[in-house]
Design a protein around this nucleic acid. Structure first.
Lengths: 215, 215
DNA sequence: CGACAGGCTGAACAGGCGTTTAATCTGTTA
DNA sequence: TAACAGATTAAACGCCTGTTCAGCCTGTCG
């Protein structure tokens, strides 16, 4: 199940070494702030070889995007029932291996990229499906606006990822960790079981206001 | 209440024109992707003047950060009861004026900056306070982990901001808008009133598992 | 053996970057 | 009027960027 892709760098082809170095640096410092020369140095090759293998810096980014997306999809397939939080849990339990991919994903998500869009869309679709199944099985309430509700849930999960630095900081650690995710499990379920409001007066007030407002 | 800071550019000092141009471009294209020369061109001055007034590109960023943060704090003070969503609502109702600031904030939030940290901290503190007051007034349930719950709520709100592009895309518009925020009002309140789960079996299962697990 | 292909390199190029420098213009103060 | 201070500029500096080019190895095929 756990691929051997990240074995000793000496075992990898130069192409793979460059790709891994790029994922590391793009994730750590961002795409713009990472030079082709820095990637080459990290991979132990010449800058020219990077271009030789990937055509351009943008080609390299594309290759990294595809690789990360592929790895993520593999992961998802082999644990089809899990949700995003579950996947994060698994990733965070082996930080040395997955941290670079984790960081890369975080960076990719707050940039305008086709990869981020595809990832987001598939996450929304999956959340909608989960919601529908839950309603059919009677374990979940029927939302008045399925897509909007799925969106809110997805944002919650992704927010933990993209703001992992702030999440860690707030809870007293340098970055998000398995321990922090564990601490968040109960409050999350609590929120999704009882909500925050003790009665539906706010909800009804809003419903009435929106009905009156018309537009 | 509505400041006259964004009047016709010709009325502004060169320093202010440069600052506004920088906010526009940093917000639209990102800090790294924006050159001092581009800011100077947008403001209609020479690149050297930018350095003359702000010392360096980083000094310019700092000045923009402080300005935006100050504007936001002013806004917040004059509407002390409102939450973040309320502020967003007000901002989005005058997009021409506030869009640059909105974009700038979005960019700032997913970069490692002291400004973002301060903003996040104050948002968490405010959310905690709101939660405590709600509990005391009986309108909100008492969470088992106040800080973690405040964190989840803050992430939900900020996630709408930092992922506004994806939010708009998912709901069929180019970017987030007042209409989209309105569509999200009811699902949000619904979520925070009833949760998603129809009973507390998931919550109790997790509680039991965590109790048994120990660590 | 010779020829070819592909991985790989050092050196260079053109262009953009943030910043500096020296000079000019403009308005105020003595 | 003379002197000064600040705003503003054109031009240049040195550096770093992504990319190209010509050539060198190394292994394979005929």
């Amino acid at each position: 199940m756990c691929s051997a892709k990240r074995s000793a760098p000496s075992d990898l082809t130069a192409r793979a070494k460059i790709r891994d170095a790029a994922i590391l640096l793009f994730g750590r410092d961002g795409f713009n702030a990472t030079s082709v020369r820095a990637v080459a140095a990290e991979a132990g090759v010449s800058p020219a070889l990077v271009i030789h293998h990937f055509g351009s810096k943008d080609g390299l980014r594309k290759a990294c995007d595809d690789f990360i997306l592929g790895e993520l999809m593999d992961e998802e397939e082999s644990a089809a029932e899990q949700d995003l939080i579950g996947t994060l849990h698994r990733w965070l339990s082996e930080p040395d291996i997955f941290q670079p991919a984790f960081d890369y994903l975080t960076r990719a998500l707050d940039q305008e990229s086709e990869t981020a869009d595809r990832l987001f869309d598939s996450l929304i679709a999956r959340t909608e499906r989960t919601l529908e199944e839950g309603v059919r099985a009677g374990t979940m309430r029927e939302p008045t606006d399925l897509k909007a509700t799925a969106l809110l849930l997805a944002i919650q999960g992704l927010g933990l990822l993209t703001m992992s630095r702030q999440v860690g900081r707030t809870l007293g650690e340098a970055r998000i960790s398995a321990a922090i995710l564990q601490r968040l499990t109960l409050p999350t379920l609590e929120l999704y079981t009882n909500g925050v409001y003790s009665d539906d007066s706010m909800l009804e007030a809003a419903r009435a206001a929106l009905k009156g407002d018309g537009s």
